[in-house]
Design a protein around this nucleic acid. Sequence first.
DNA 1: GTTCCGCATGAATCGATAG
DNA 2: ACTATCGATTCATGCGGAA
Lengths: 270, 270
Amino acid sequence: MQQQVRTELFLGDCREVLERLDEGSVDLIITSPPYADQRKETYGGVHPDHYVEWFLPVSRELLRVLKPSGTFILNIKEKVVEGERSTYVMELILEMRKQGWLWTEEFIWHKKNCYPGKWPNRFRDAWERLLQFNKSKKFNMHQDEVMVPMGDWARSRLKNLSKTDKIRDPSKVGSGFGKNISNWLSRDKAFPTNVLHLATECNNKNHSAAFPMELPEWFIKLFTQPGDTVLDPFMGSGTSIHVANRMGRHAIGIDIVPEYYEMALKKPSR
Amino acid sequence: MQQQVRTELFLGDCREVLERLDEGSVDLIITSPPYADQRKETYGGVHPDHYVEWFLPVSRELLRVLKPSGTFILNIKEKVVEGERSTYVMELILEMRKQGWLWTEEFIWHKKNCYPGKWPNRFRDAWERLLQFNKSKKFNMHQDEVMVPMGDWARSRLKNLSKTDKIRDPSKVGSGFGKNISNWLSRDKAFPTNVLHLATECNNKNHSAAFPMELPEWFIKLFTQPGDTVLDPFMGSGTSIHVANRMGRHAIGIDIVPEYYEMALKKPSR
DNA sequence: GTTCCGCATGAATCGATAG
DNA sequence: ACTATCGATTCATGCGGAA
């Protein structure tokens, strides 16, 4: 029942708050930390050169509070510095492995409505990383929960490519399954892939979410069950926390910015 | 003219063959090297732990033969080893930067019809990396050649120009920017993003790396002009070489496997 | 109730100018 | 020279009001 769902929100630096959480108490961590040099007004901005050392204490605590069967989903993307992609995300992955994390998978979030712009040497950036880390090779995964209908794939929550995407790419889709196609026709649902097609939410309201609700929803369905605990150490306005609550999961949210903390407190769990 | 197009095919280890090519003689290198520990029969297989040291001598020679204005597109994806994604691609990027390469961009190839399958701990892998490396920040890029049709929204969009189309609100986030809507009036095409949606080709069963023609075609259009030179040091059956020729570019192809070399020789340049 | 249409907004990046 | 700020460029989406 919804009433049984526990929600704990903390105002403060997650490096300190996390120390107060019990070891092995969280089933899913899903977060989108401030990217390097971004959100200067609110988070102060972290220089790309110092990003790894800034994040490692956090990931160490996250490793502690996660259950052995749990999963950590990290949404991040490196920025361009002087014409090159920065390497701090790769360095972060390498360092987190040294901490004991397993880098299990990398999902791609294809942002269908990416930021506009034109530059002489690059195109618009339309994707972000969704890095999956685990504590052990045996982690919980409920694949059936995120199956997508095959027939009306377009209407499903995990949306398919938009109309223009189809117009733009006239190559032969579905021509490549060979004999296995018969297996698929008899099913009505299919497992998704590791590429997620979602638009960023840019509504007219006073705040915009870091990522669309469908994103945490998808991973919460995939990696937790009702009654499990979801943690977001950089909750922002609290999107993933409230999605977790709505789905009957306990939620723990942390943010260092008072405005976000207040916003998360007040947000109706509709 | 097509007749003027030069094609050089070599049978041998590209580390040796590349030494015979002139410095600064290639405009675009596009290749899909044998993935780690894959295709053992054909390439002998490279263990993930030795992949970086195996590839670095190749990339050093590629750096030499590339023009300062040229581009290197590397199609690669790390395999899963004992439940984890291997880190050799990230390590390779870090090491190639030490060689002098600039890691300019990472395109995503979304494989729309990836191979079906089911595993208890992961979904189907539907994307690969297309790493862009450059020798200098000033490289050739012909963006107009790869423009795509605009979305349907554009038609109604341009009927009425709103105030904010001319003067954008310096909005709350501070990300506001002014528009020059007059640039749009005659526009029916848009620039693409760094996510490519292509289906894999499966017609050529003989070749172990399924590389859809559209992929080299797109990068050849983007980074070269007719008369330029395209190199594929792991040409396989020679798809990118023949696409380059068909598009009026000179081509150099290398492969160590006699069967592939023969295949590339015989392939009609339709 | 549908569909249509107007419109603000988004983890962007480059190059020029200012301190 | 080296860093910080600012102006210029751009496309797709979902919302909300109108038809």
